[in-house]
Design a protein around this nucleic acid. Structure first.
Lengths: 326, 326
DNA sequence: CTGTTAGCGCCTTCAA
DNA sequence: TTGAAGGCGCTAACAG
């Protein structure tokens, strides 16, 4: 069961067993074989907790995601998991919903040495709080970064992407472009709204309309659309900050006998695979979701192995994919 | 930094600090306050690894999910995470893709005492291998269980649900009902196909057609549909084992100038929220995804606290939701 | 090439 | 009510 038992069985010291276990060079083949045999004989499994305590390295990463149900998040997490595993790291997942209380419960794992670093996808508004709890442990903020805060970050250019979206819609003759936004505690929401407004201004479009979805589910997109359509002047185009919200918006339009894109154009965000297969196929801003996760892990591991290495703030490119919905 | 430092600072022994930390009764209030003050003074954070090693309890659960990108999985995981957290447990997530190699890497965490138990959503074909690696550690198989194997399980009645699906389509006059199935290594796929075939037989429908999607993404559903439509006799109804696959199938039908449901009916599985908002709204078999996760955790914690408690094999109900696509 | 020894930081009897 | 001491299982000097 323990390394000592193996040592006794093989007639060597625990140090030698440990050496074999960790693949050290200087062990005579014969001894090595005896140890290996003993290990097999008693089906020994090293106690990883003890090893981690001793080496003060756990090879585990904490991932605080706002909501794993959001397909955007699950794809990012998929990238995180794959890259982490490729480097021999495991991940602990927390559905934080950006609630400080849940987060702090998980972050004790950081201070408690259970994880070597943390990747967060939290609302920017929480960052000061996070900062305090995380201290200067290795930390990467994913998809919500900001150069002003003290961790590395991997993001996209939300402002510019939103501007592109609006220009696209305007080019197609849309005059009253509405925004279905996410929770404004998030920087991505703030930045996309900023981009939306700056583009409208630049285009001399005076009509504007913003509604916030209270969660990233299609029902919330539907509800936001209802509110937009209830206005005196209805929009003739919708920019939704997520494909999921766009689905709800389109459905709502249809319920109101509005044809997409004839009566109202819809543009989504994220570029989920099924957006191409909707009816009509959804125009969208494609984000490198998987890659956001991959890169986050790379930056984090960098900081873990070299704690004094400089912080990095990286932006990955987005791509507007125009389809039939706009 | 360590408990010893706190003890020195407070002028007590480490034992007393430990008692305060763990909320023991018999500590004189005055002493307690001094300890608390010392803890605050040096911003002491207990080393959880050391505690876990000492108590041999980690309050962490391993979750092996086939693919977190599958919305079905992410919703189950969401239930798992919520229920685990409610009981003070954390979860380690592994995207196993049912690959034994990846799984075994994660399962060393079980034998290595890093996690107290494991929830798997793996293909049944892997179960013997898993069994071997898991031994008799606490284990719950979620959404893929089987009474013949040695862990508890929480599932749905796949066979009966598939039969319901077929009866529904037949009742609406469909004669050539095809199945777009998932990876046949999975029991759910096997059972749904069994249900499909048994219902066809019972209904005296001689036409049958099964295609397998190589992953749970809409592109795979599209490809499977292509193959079905290339047959001599085209189906007039599709039963897809996931809403995601159904989206691809519908899109493919449309590309072939087939109208849904007039020319071809489509029935999905899972009951993802956006299925109701597709065009046409998708008929589907709704599974209690979140609840599957919740229940899995409950059964697992039961086994963790009472390792000798009996194994449980539970089935949660599904519901056919008929919409415009069928 | 191998063994001895000393902790990693914590909890938990056992005494006092 | 508190302290002393031992050990969870492992690794890493330091000797030999």
């Amino acid at each position: 069961m323990s390394i000592e038992k193996v040592a006794r069985l093989a007639g060597v010291s625990t140090a030698t067993v440990s050496r074999v276990l960790n693949g050290y060079e200087g062990v005579r083949p014969a001894t090595r074989d005896r140890v290996l045999a003993a290990i097999a004989a008693c089906q020994y499994q090293p106690n990883l907790l003890a090893r981690q305590l001793r080496t003060s390295k756990s090879r585990m990463l904490l991932v605080l995601v706002s909501n794993i149900i959001n397909p955007f998040c699950s794809r990012v997490v998929s990238g995180i998991e794959a890259e982490a595993e490729a480097h021999g790291y495991h991940i602990l997942l927390c559905n934080s919903d950006s609630q400080t209380q849940r987060e702090s419960a998980y972050l004790t794992l950081l201070s408690g040495k259970v994880v070597d670093g943390v990747i967060t996808m939290d609302a920017i508004s929480n960052l000061p709080g996070l900062r305090q709890m995380i201290g200067d442990s290795p930390w990467v903020q994913c998809a919500e970064g900001h150069a002003d805060f003290a961790g590395s970050s991997v993001t996209i250019d939300n402002l510019q992407s939103a501007r592109e979206a609006i220009f696209h819609l305007a080019q197609r003759g849309r005059q009253r472009i509405a925004l279905i936004n996410g929770d404004p505690r998030y920087l991505y929401a703030q930045q996309r709204e900023l981009g939306y407004r700056s583009a409208l201004a630049e285009l001399n479009l005076s009509w504007s309309g913003v509604e916030y979805a209270n969660e990233v589910e299609c029902e919330a997109g539907y509800a936001a659309m209802e509110r937009l359509l209830a206005r005196d002047q209805q929009p003739d185009a919708i920019f939704a900050v997520s494909d999921v919200l766009a689905v709800g918006a389109i459905h709502c339009a249809r319920q109101h006998q509005l044809h997409v894109p004839t009566d109202i154009a819809v543009l989504g965000f994220d570029g989920l695979p099924w957006s191409a297969m909707l009816s009509p196929p959804l125009s969208t801003l494609e984000q490198p979701m998987y890659q956001l996760g991959v890169r986050s892990v790379q930056l984090l591991l960098q900081r873990i192995s070299h704690p004094r290495s400089p912080l990095v703030h990286e932006q990955l490119p987005c791509k507007l994919v125009a389809r039939a919905s706009s």
